[in-house]
Design a protein around this nucleic acid. Structure first.
Lengths: 141, 141
DNA sequence: CTTGACCCTGTAACGGTTACAGGGTTGAGG
DNA sequence: CCTCAACCCTGTAACCGTTACAGGGTCAAG
């Protein structure tokens, strides 16, 4: 056990690239591993675990700062997990908001596509819908 | 007419900041305006129009490269507008895909939140769902 | 002893802005 | 005429999360 894993091994096991792993170390997201005399990083299985956690969080769309926060929380097993719940709920709300925004954009552009008679560019409904009225200056701000 | 508009005027009228306008000029998205002896940029109403177009496209989530393409197409009024339609349809498809992805993420995290008994961090269902199994190494790749 | 696969560092790129720092110009009020 | 605020200019670096170099060192097999 505690086999000396090189960064490439950890990369294969965790699904991150060596570059990403070094990056996470630089920004303080991943603990610095033991270094051999040759300067090589030698990892334990815990690092693979940690990176798996980060990867899963990233896959869920969490930002690195949020992940940092989660890692800090995970280090306090006695505490109540309200903060974790709160963070997760906030992220879900964020996602739902972004979904609604994208939905609105998609619908708007879709409508333009359907309105366009498919004529020449000079009469293209899509371009028209994108072009602001000529003498329209934002009146008050 | 053709009043000499300073970059700040154009910014107010178009809704972009002066910094963004200079940026668009640098990357070749916006035509270089006439320059006075003092080095100031002097714009016509056409620039306001152009920037409004860009802003609307950005608001719809189009990338600058796509906008560049649209501007090029808009310069060929005789051509059929199939390319414009194609670009718009591709973008809508892109948006729908991103919506589906985000939806899946939101649902997954939401499920974790609801499954969590709200106990201590040591028993937090959310953190558990984020933590990969211990001896799980990506088997084949 | 060479080859090739790995490791290291440090820096810059991607996209789309935004934010400086360090200067010059203009126009209105005193 | 002087001063002050409000603008303009350029060039560079920051943001986010990676990825991709360049230019080197190390190691194990043949």
């Amino acid at each position: 056990m505690t086999t000396h894993l090189l960064i490439g091994d950890v990369a294969r096991k965790s699904g991150c690239t060596p570059e990403t792993i070094r990056h996470y170390e630089r920004i303080g997201l991943l603990a610095k591993p033991w270094r051999g005399d040759n300067g090589y990083r030698y990892y334990t299985a815990a690092a693979v675990q940690q990176l798996g956690f980060i990867r899963r969080c990233r896959a869920l769309g969490l930002e690195l700062d949020a992940i940092r926060e989660l890692i800090a929380l995970a280090g306090q097993p006695e505490e109540r997990c309200e903060s974790v719940n709160e963070l997760a709920r906030r992220h879900v709300a964020d996602l739902r908001q972004r979904i609604a925004d994208l939905q609105a954009l998609a619908d708007e552009l879709d409508a333009s596509v359907h309105r366009c008679p498919g004529n020449t560019i000079a009469h293209c409904g899509i371009l028209e819908s994108l072009t602001p009225a000529l003498s329209d200056s934002t009146p008050a701000n």
